[in-house]
Design a protein around this nucleic acid. Structure first.
Lengths: 359, 359
DNA sequence: CTGAAAGCGCTTACAG
DNA sequence: CTGAAAGCGCTTACAG
C-alpha cells in the first residue's frame, strides 16, 4: 500500500505514453511535448508517483548522496556545521548520510567500507580524529572528497580550513597587547594540522614579542583534558594570567574550572580566548572572546569544491584557507586603543566591523 | 579508477565461478562450497571488490537506510540523540540520512518527497516542529516510522517518549516540597504533546497542592523566547521564587538571564528545574536540576520498534513511554528530608540511586 | 551447492 | 519529440 510502490510504467500506462517518456518528464533530459508532459505530471500526481532514486542511481552512476564523517556532535561548532552543510547540500539536490568515526582503526576502516558500499558521490571528512589511513583509502577509492576544518599535509586531497596560523597569532598578539605576561596555550592535537597551526601561530607571536610561553600542552581537543590541564596549571606557584585555548569547546570547560572551581574572575584575574566562535560563545554565560571560523564561507567553499569534483572535469585538489576575525567579547582584557589597531588589522576581512560582533 | 568500479562479474570471472555465486558469498543467502567461497573472498579482496548497495537495494526493495528528520542541532539533547541513534542503527546494518525540517509547510512537504524518493526503509521523526501533515503523509506512504521524543495524538504511529506528565509532576512536587510559593512554568509548545504533557504534570501538581501557578506561558521550546519571558516575569512586582522550564535548552537561557542580567542567585533567590538532562546540564557552569530523559533506553526502544516494523510481520503501532528520574543538582533548593522520600518515589525506576546522578 | 535467466525501476543511446 | 531495446549490478526463484 501507499504511493511508494507506483512506478514509471504504471504512470506510462495510465497516461498512454511509453515508460521512457515518463522518465524524460521527470529527469528533463530530453524535451517532451509540453501537452504530453503535462498529462504525465497530472497522472503522476494522482497516482502519487515519486521517481525511485535508487533505480536512477544504479544506471546513472550517481547516488546523489554525500557522506559526512564526524567524530561527535558535542562540540557545537560541528553540530552547527553539520546542520548548515546538510542544508546547503540538500539545496543542491544531494542528501546527506552521516558516519560517526570513533578512534579505533577498525572502526575507521569499517566506515570506509560503508562509504564505498553506499556509493556516495562525495565525502566530507569533518572528523578531527581521522587517521591518515582513512584519508588515503578514501582518496584511492576515487570518490571526490573534501577535508572540512581538518587540514592534512597530504596535498592530493582538497581541504577547507580557517587561517589557523594567522588566527592563533592574532589571538596571542591581542593578549600580549593587553599587557599579559604569562600566557599559556592549551593546544588542540598534535596529529591534527588545524591544532598544530594554531599552536604555531601562538608560538610565533610569543617569539616575536620576546616572550616565553607559560605553558603549551596538547589537550587532544578534549574538554575534560583541557579542564584537567587548567587545574594543573593553576596549582603551580606561578599561575598564567591568560590562556589561549585551541577551540571553544575546550574553552568552555576552562572557563568553568577557572570560575566555578578556582573562584577566579575572568578577565580580571585571567583572560581566556577560544577558537571557532561556536554558537554558545556568544552566550552571556560564556561571553567568550574567540577567533571566528567563518562557517558560512567554509561551507560554501566545501560545497563548491566537492560538487566541482563530482560534476566537473577532474579538477585538481585545492586548499582553501579562509581568514577569520577575532571576535572580542568579555572573557579577555581589551588592549588600550585596540579598536583603531584592529580596524586596520582586519581590513582585508569580510566583516571589517569588530563592534558588530560584540553584540 | 579506484576499487569502486569492480563488480561481482569481474570477481566471478577472476575466480572462475558464476556471478550469482559471488553474490551468494557476500549476501550469504544460500550456502556456498566453503572452498569456493574462500577463493571468491580472496579474489574480491585482491580486486578491491565491495558489493554495490544501490544495486542490492533496487531488487531487494530494501535500501538499508533510515531517514532521521530533525529541526536543528542547537539543542544538545537532539545532537546527542542523533549521534547515538546513528551508532545504534549502523550497528544493525543501516546507514542514516539526515533531513532538517524547518517550519514552513513547503519545506516539510519537500522533505517528505525526499524521504520517499530516497526510498529509506524507515523514518525517525525527531523534530519538534513537525506538522501533523508530515506525520500523516509519512504514514500514508507505508514506510515504517517512529516518532522520537515527539508524541502525537494520532494513535496509528509508533512513538517513544519519556513519561512527560509524570516528569513534569515530579519536578513541580520537588519545588513545592522545597517550600517554594510562587512557581512559574515556562512551557514547551502547545502543538507538541511532550510539552503539553509536561505542562499538565505541572498543573496537576500545583492543583493537588492547592497552589496557583505564578505563570504558565508557552515558549515554543525556543531559548530566546524563554529568556524574554523570564525578563518579563521578573520585571513584575511579584516575582517567582522557582521556575520549571520545559527543556534544558531553554533552561540554560533562563539561568543566564537570572544570573547575568538580573544578578539573582540560584537557588538562593530562585530555583530552576529543566527537562532532558542534556549533556551540558551536568556542567558545573549550569549545574542544572532536571528530569532525565533516559536517552539510551529511548534509543533502544526506537530502534527496536522501527526494525520490528521493517523486518517483522506488520506490527501494530506502539506507544512506548519511558520513565525518567529527577536528577538533583545545584540549581534548585533541596527539600528537607528529600532523600528518603525520593528513594521511595523512584523505586520503580531503573536507576533507583539518586545520589549516583549527583556527581 | 551452482549456473542460466529474469527482473528490480530507472536512463540512455538508437532509430525513427 | 518518442518508442523499443539494452543495461546499471545486484538478488532470487528455477532447474539441475
Amino acid at each position: 500500500m501507499g504511493s511508494a510502490r507506483v512506478t514509471a510504467s504504471d504512470v506510462a500506462k495510465a497516461a498512454g505514453v511509453s515508460q521512457p517518456t515518463v522518465s524524460r518528464v521527470f529527469s528533463r533530459s530530453t524535451s517532451v511535448d509540453p501537452e504530453k508532459a503535462e498529462r504525465v505530471r497530472k497522472v503522476a500526481r494522482e497516482l502519487g508517483y515519486i521517481p525511485n532514486l535508487v533505480a536512477r542511481s544504479l544506471n546513472s552512476g550517481n547516488s546523489f548522496r554525500i557522506g559526512i564523517v564526524l567524530a561527535y556532535l558535542k562540540n557545537g561548532f560541528f553540530s552547527e556545521a553539520l546542520h548548515r552543510l546538510s542544508k546547503a547540500l540538500n539545496a543542491k539536490g544531494y542528501s546527506v548520510t552521516v558516519y560517526f568515526a570513533g578512534n579505533s582503526a577498525d572502526e575507521v576502516n569499517a566506515i570506509v567500507d560503508d562509504l564505498l558500499a553506499d556509493r556516495v558521490d562525495g565525502i566530507v571528512l569533518a572528523s578531527i580524529s581521522l587517521s591518515n589511513t582513512l584519508v588515503s583509502r578514501v582518496r584511492n577509492s576515487g570518490i571526490p572528497c573534501v577535508l572540512f576544518n581538518r587540514g592534512q599535509s597530504d596535498p592530493k586531497t582538497s581541504m577547507v580550513t580557517a587561517s589557523n596560523f594567522d588566527g592563533g597569532k592574532r589571538a596571542t598578539e591581542f593578549l600580549i597587547a593587553a599587557g599579559h605576561k604569562r600566557i599559556a596555550h592549551l593546544a588542540g592535537w598534535r596529529e591534527a594540522l588545524n591544532g598544530v597551526e594554531r599552536m604555531q601561530g601562538f608560538l610565533a607571536a610569543m617569539q616575536a614579542a620576546g616572550m616565553e610561553p607559560a605553558a603549551c600542552t596538547d589537550c587532544h581537543f578534549r574538554r575534560t583534558v583541557a579542564m584537567q590541564e587548567t587545574r594543573r596549571l593553576f596549582a603551580q606557584p606561578q599561575v598564567p594570567d591568560a590562556v589561549f585555548v585551541a577551540n571553544d569547546h575546550m574553552a568552555f570547560g576552562v572557563l568553568e574550572v577557572l570560575r566555578e572551581e578556582l573562584g577566579l574572575r575572568v578577565p580580571q584575574d585571567v583572560s581566556v580566548i577560544g577558537y571557532d566562535d561556536a554558537p554558545m560563545a556568544a552566550w552571556k554565560t560564556f561571553d567568550l572572546t574567540t577567533v571566528r571560523q567563518p562557517l558560512n564561507r567554509m561551507i560554501e567553499a566545501t560545497v563548491a569544491l566537492l560538487l566541482g569534483e563530482i560534476q566537473g572535469e577532474n579538477r585538481k585538489p585545492e586548499k582553501v584557507e579562509i581568514p577569520g576575525q577575532l571576535v572580542v567579547r568579555g572573557s579577555a582584557r581589551i588592549p588600550v586603543g585596540w579598536h583603531d589597531a584592529e580596524k586596520e588589522a582586519v581590513a582585508g576581512c569580510q566583516r571589517p566591523d569588530p563592534t558588530g560582533a560584540r553584540k
